[in-house]
Nucleic acid binder design. Sequence first.
DNA 1: TATCCAAGGTAAGTT
DNA 2: AACTTACCTTGGATA
Length: 308
Amino acid sequence: MERGAIDVRALDGPFDLQATVESGQSYLWNRADGGTYETLHAHGGDEWYETVVDPIPGLTTERVPIRVRQEGGVDDGTLQWESSTDAVPLLEHLLRLDDDLDAILDATPDLPLLERAYDAYEGMRLTRDPVFPCLISFICSAQMRVARIHGMQRRLRETYGDVVELDGAQYHAFPTPDQLAERTESELRELSLGYRAPYVQRTAEMIASREAHPAEAADLPYEEARESLTRFVGVGDKVADCVLLFSLGFLEAVPLDTWIRTTIEEYYPDCDRGSYAATSRAIRDRLGGEYAGYAQTYVFYYLRAGGE
DNA sequence: TATCCAAGGTAAGTT
DNA sequence: AACTTACCTTGGATA
C-alpha cells in the first residue's frame, strides 16, 4: 500500500473534502463509518472516504482503491490518502483539485444568494466522476432522496461489483456495463431501484453492446451533448445535465431539479421561460455562464441544508 | 397503527 | 411541441 498527503495550501483556492463528496453531486464516495449523508455536515469533518476507480486513460491502467480524509482547515489542512498506487493525480482528477477556485469565484456574478452559499461551504469543489457510474447513479436519482440514492449505489456495488483489496480490507468496485447488462429487471428491482430498474438495465445494455457510450458526449458543444445523452433510457434533460456537469466537465451546465426550480421561482422568476432549454439558458446566464454549474451546486447544497 | 405524501424525473400517450 | 399521467419505494408527517 502507498500513502501520502496533499497540502491544501498548494492548491489554487481552498478545499473542503466533506462538502465536495457529501453535497449530493457524487454518489461514488463512501464514508468509512457507513454514514448515509442523512445529516448534512453533522460529523467532525475528518472522516475517511473510500472509492474504487476503474482505469482512467492517461492516469491508470488498473482498477484502484483509494481512501482519503482531510485534516485541518479548508485553507491550510492536508488531504491524507491511502491507495494501491500514487493517488495524487487521481485525486486531482476526481476532486477537481486542478480547478482555480478563487478565479472561479471571481468570475461569479455578485448575487446575494450565491454569496451566502459560497460563504457557507467555502472550499467545496465539483467532482469529476467516472462517467458510467455517474450516469447510472443519476438515472437512479429520479424522484428519490439523496440518502436513498446512496443506498441504491451501495447495493449495486456490493451485489454486482468486483471485490478489490487494500491493506487487507475489501472494497467493491462499481459494476461494469457488462455486469449490469446481464442482470434482469426483477433482479435490479430487488435492490429497491423501483421503476428505475429497467432504465438501468437497458442503458447498461446499450453501452455493453457498443451501441453508444456516454463519454462520446464530451466532444460535442454543450447543448448537443445534453441532447446526445438523452438517448440513454431513463435519461432526460436533467439527468443529462448532471452527467455533463459532474463527470464530463461542462461547468456551464445547470441541472434544473426541483431545488433549482424553486430557487428560480423565488429569486429569479424572470428566468422561467417555460421549456427546459430556454429556462436553462436564462438561469445559466444569470449565474455567470461559464461556471454556472459551480454556482448551481453551491446553491443546491446550501438550500438543501436549510439555508435561505 | 393506518394512511398519506413527497422525494435531484422520465417515458409514453394525448391534444 | 406542449400537456397529462403512471411509475417503485420508503421514511416521516399526519390523523
